[in-house]
Simulated scan of single mutants.
Amino acid sequence: MSEHRLLGTTGVHVSPLTLGTMMFGAWGNTDHDASVRVIHRALDAGINTVDTADVYSRGESEEIVGRALKGRRDDVVLATKFHGAMSDDDPNQGGSSRRWIIRAVEDSLRRLQTDYIDLYQVHRPRPEIDIDDTLSALSDLVHQGKIRYLGTSTFLPSQVVEAQWTAERRGRERPVTEQPPYSILAREVERDLLPTAQKHGLGILPWSPLAGGWLSGRYRRGEQPPVSSRQQRQPARHDADLPENRAKLEAVHQLQDLADEAGLSLIHLALAFVLRHPAVSSAIIGPRTLEQLESQLGADKVSLSDDVLDRIDEIVPPGTTLNEADRGYAPPALVEPGLRRRR
């Protein structure tokens, strides 16, 4: 692993690659021992930052991470998230209300077998909840020593600014990181989100830098697109018959050709591209197996030439996201007709 990077203006040093653990547990690798081996290999390779969430397999991922970090906890920058529904029956077991946050953090601490979380993140925006209520609860947790820093994930630029403004005006702890979707196929955050984050000194931890597997090298020109479990879980992002995904597939074929010409794997090309942006602190990789992890290690040592970067810009222009579903969050005003039609 190459030299560590600063996480925004926190003074915390993070590895260029962060180990994301969404695929450990029922959502991916159900073998806990195998998942622990992946985590240990990542740490041994120099990755010092681990990201999870309570909603990943409803707590199972956090439990695996907690087990894997025994004896190594203080060497790791540990991040987790709250917001996702943790019950099918109780609507209060999720979201970003003070009531839920105070309970959710205790549940995560127990599963992670730790007495503090380095970075506690709001997993998605909740426009109907006063951001001050959320920041107030998180500030209390910072003052209690249960979390060190707070962050956000998949917030719109306006929501990032609102959180900063609210924290300053109300005397709350401010979010110090943002975790957006960012890959060669999903570049919209380059328009406003990344410059906004830089202006406010936020660390950026992009999720899905391999575009949910589209940039894994599995999609080869002239071959039938592979069928994956993600097609059933997220058809809007992965159904190859949809026009927007056909556009992604054509871009992937061109990017694979470019990677071949440059003597790189497509995985390394994709990760190196994300790491090249000056706003990015660390890119989150999400391997399910040791083989997948090994294919991603070393991407931080790859330096893309300006010619290669220019070719990437020709294939997917800066600021362009080929499929709306890859944005990770649809504002209510776009999905609820009543919010854009005068009654």
Score class of each variant (00 low, 15 high):
F82R: 06
T154V: 12
V76Y: 09
G66K: 11
D118W: 01
A104C: 05
L271W: 03
R218H: 09
L141N: 04
R343C: 05
Y56E: 12
F155D: 01
A270I: 12
R103K: 14
K70E: 15
K81H: 09
G338R: 11
R327W: 00
A104R: 04
K81T: 07
L242V: 01
V38H: 00
V14A: 00
P331I: 02
P226I: 05
Q93H: 08
T154M: 06
S265G: 15
I147K: 06
Q198K: 14
G28S: 13
Y219A: 06
R72Y: 14
R342H: 14
Q159C: 00
H123M: 07
P209Q: 05
E173S: 12
R98A: 14
I39G: 06
P235F: 02
V189S: 05
K301A: 15
Q164G: 05
A211R: 13
R342N: 14
G298I: 05
I147A: 12
Q179A: 03
G338M: 04
W165Q: 14
L138S: 01
L290V: 02
F155H: 09
G28L: 13
P206K: 00
D33T: 13
G201N: 03
T49S: 10
M23N: 15
A259C: 08
Q231V: 12
L138H: 00
A236T: 02
E62M: 03
G8H: 02
L43F: 10
G25S: 15
A272G: 13
Q93T: 06
A333I: 10
I312S: 03
R170H: 11
L339Y: 01
Q256E: 10
P331R: 10
P209D: 02
L185G: 01
W27L: 15
R221A: 14
Y182Q: 08
L309Q: 07
D33M: 11
D130M: 07
T52I: 10
V176S: 04
H4I: 00
G46I: 06
P91N: 09
P235Y: 04
N29M: 13
R124Q: 13
D306Q: 13
L141W: 00
Q256K: 07
G263C: 08
V65Q: 08
P243C: 07
Y219I: 10
D257Q: 09
V76N: 12
P243T: 04
Q121S: 04
R327H: 04
A272C: 09
G46D: 05
R187A: 02
S216Y: 07
N29V: 11
R110S: 13
G25I: 14
R98I: 03
D130Y: 11
T49D: 02
L258T: 10
V308D: 02
D118Q: 04
D33E: 15
Y149H: 14
A53L: 10
M1K: 08
D88F: 13
F24I: 10
L255S: 10
Q254S: 06
G286Q: 06
L266W: 12
H13C: 07
V252G: 02
G217Q: 09
Q164Y: 07
E314T: 14
L141I: 01
Y116D: 09
V335A: 13
G222R: 07
Q292K: 04
D140C: 01
L339G: 02
G20I: 07
P175I: 11
Y182V: 00
T166E: 04
A251T: 06
T30S: 15
R343H: 14
A333Y: 05
D310R: 13
L141E: 03
G46E: 03
